[in-house]
Computed example of a mutant assay.
Amino acid sequence: MHTSPILASDVWIDHPHGRLFSRVWRHASTGRADSENTPIVLLHDSLGCVDLWRDFPALLAFETGCDVLAYDRLGFGRSDRREGKLPLDFIADEARTYFPVVCEQHKVNRFIAFGHSVGGGMAVHCAAQYPERCEGLITESAQAFIGEETRAGLLEAKGLFEDERALSRLAKYHGDKAAWVLDAWLGTWLAPSFAAWSLRDVLPAVRCPVLAIHGALDEYGSSRHPETIAEHAAGPSRVHILPGTYHVPHKERPGEIAGLVAAFSSR
């Protein structure tokens, strides 16, 4: 285990569609990133951003010895706003359009992709899109398809966000983009045109080792989601179900998640 202090640095990334905000956590003793480093790249959930990972990236860097990189997707957090509705292929498009620019800016060659919730689906596409570069895939609370539990969880969340105070809390992290962020989540996932979405077609292109983490009490889907990821991915896959855990394991059980990732990355 590395014991040197973890340093965080912020980097702005120019993209043709708008500026993206990113942050990297690394051990003080390692200095600057280089082409031999294999960082863990975090992809956030539907309402997430860099700041909402809170202390977890620093803990992850400490436990794994890896650099950890996170960025705000366009329209989220500190990144520039995004106009209009998300395209129906926005999950796959993140891997094609934005992820490679982030990697280029940070001089990332090989990587471990770690995605939470919808970020897990994006991480799957990153692993499939760049099979020679992705050394490992970690999904946490990822949806593999839209089932009845997923839809029920979304409808319950929609009711909660009818309270203006909930939107105000969202604005703390997304500013005046908060209403767009909420619609990009609920409006997209509840749209009839999105109902047939799944990861099944892309998973066979994932050749790296896979760790699919899921809470037994996840509000947005049963264990069938990580099981589907593991069953359909081509690489060696492991499912880890956390008892008594809901949709955000890295917040509910940060030390355990960091330990799971450290054991996975060391292999």
Rank of each mutant, 00 (worst) to 15 (best):
H44D: 05
H27A: 15
R32G: 10
I91Q: 09
E135G: 13
M122V: 03
Q105Y: 00
R26D: 06
R78F: 10
R81I: 06
Q129T: 10
G65R: 07
I13L: 12
I146G: 09
C49G: 04
K107N: 03
I112R: 02
C49W: 05
R73F: 04
I40A: 14
F76I: 07
Y98V: 07
Y71E: 02
G136C: 07
L86G: 09
E132C: 09
A58G: 14
L52H: 02
S46G: 15
A95P: 05
V50L: 10
Q105D: 03
A142M: 06
E149D: 14
S29V: 06
S9C: 12
N109I: 08
I91S: 11
G147V: 11
R96Y: 08
F90C: 13
L137P: 02
R23C: 09
I146Y: 10
L52Q: 09
H125T: 04
Q105M: 10
R23M: 09
V108M: 03
K85T: 13
L69V: 09
L47Q: 01
T64H: 06
G121F: 02
S22V: 06
A28G: 05
T38S: 15
A33D: 02
S35N: 07
F145T: 13
L60I: 11
T139Q: 05
H17G: 12
Q143A: 13
H125L: 09
A61N: 01
L88N: 07
F62A: 12
L20G: 00
L74M: 05
G147D: 15
L42M: 14
R73M: 03
R133P: 00
I146A: 14
S22M: 08
M122K: 02
F99R: 04
D67S: 15
I13F: 08
E149V: 10
D45L: 06
G121A: 12
Y98C: 04
W25L: 11
A142Q: 03
G119C: 00
I13R: 02
R110Q: 12
G119R: 01
C103Y: 05
R78D: 11
A8Y: 06
L74E: 00
P57T: 12
L86A: 13
